[in-house]
């Protein structure tokens, strides 16, 4: 009986350690003294992190990625919010259809969505323009705020809405003073999910603006093909750290197990 407990604990920790190990190695590699790919690191040097923010060759892809991610997540939330609100407020076939449409891009392999955007923007003659990647990411990832906002609306105590309405509040007042404060954590988590995935997304960005702009994932992949530099490791560490940080914030401000579908206890 004890053997089962030992085996299952051992299994859990082996999986956990293998999951984290690649990033420990990357973090180690990023502080190498010289430009070498060695672990354990030889010497200690944080200069590669400086290069990431100061060397224009790395700083520009970083800023490009950040700009795309911020714009795309704002746009995705702006598209998702009215759909989720409408489907909470009314029961219509049309509303369900739009929500279903919003869930589609995320179900298919991303290369298909990327090819759709590539043909579309080439035919229209907008290929390579900055806004195209923002729109493409927002549409591709709109499923995420749609899901988190729908969960949030389901959670609203309808008696509060009823009360304010019976006291004469208009639709707009109800939305602003009662619904918004309750739905805010779900707006933020929807925003965060799109932001993180857009920041890391590669194939759609390549197929819309890859010939004109370079995002950080593209920069890392290109650097990987044309020779190693520890700045790559530094950039990866910064990305891993910010991804973990953002999801930790989501977990701190909302119920993460519930957001991911666990039964509320």
């Amino acid at each position: 009986m004890k053997l089962g407990k030992i085996l299952s604990t051992l299994f859990f920790w082996i999986v956990g350690i293998v999951t984290i190990a690649p990033f420990v190695v990357i973090a180690g590699v990023s502080v190498n003294e010289r430009k070498s790919l060695t672990f354990p690191p030889e010497g200690f040097n944080l200069g590669w992190y400086g290069d990431l923010f100061l060397d224009p060759e790395w700083r520009e892809p970083l800023l490009t990625s950040l700009t795309i991610a911020i714009c795309a997540s704002l746009l995705a939330v702006l598209i998702a919010f009215p759909v989720a609100w409408f489907n909470w407020r009314y029961r219509t076939g049309f509303g369900k259809l739009v929500a279903g449409l919003g869930a589609m891009p995320f179900l298919l392999p991303p290369v298909i969505t990327a090819m759709g955007f590539l043909t579309f923007f080439i035919i229209l003659g907008y290929y390579g323009e900055f806004w195209t990647v923002v729109v493409a990411h927002a549409i591709f990832l709109v499923t995420l705020p749609l899901v988190s906002l729908s969960l949030g609306f389901e959670d609203i105590d309808t008696s509060l809405v009823e009360a304010s309405r019976s006291m004469g509040a208009s639709e707009a007042t109800v939305l602003r003073t009662v619904v918004m404060p309750m739905i805010r954590p779900y707006v933020i988590s929807g925003f965060c999910f799109v932001f993180v995935i857009s920041l890391n997304e590669y194939i759609i960005a390549v197929m819309t603006v890859g010939a004109v702009f370079e995002t950080l994932p593209m920069k890392i992949f290109n650097a990987l093909r044309y020779g190693y530099t520890p700045v790559m490791a530094a950039a990866s560490v910064v990305f891993v750290a910010s991804t973990v940080l953002i999801f930790s914030l989501v977990a701190a401000f909302s119920d993460l197990p519930k957001l991911l579908g666990a039964r509320s206890k």
């Binding site: 190990a21 590669y202 994932p217 890392i220 990987l224 790559m232 991804t243």
Partner: peptide
């Protein structure tokens, strides 16, 4: 799950 395949690929090729 969210991290770029470029980063995961780099991490694994290093590993």
């Amino acid at each position: 799950l969210s991290l770029s395949e470029a980063i995961i690929g780099f991490a694994w090729s290093t590993l």
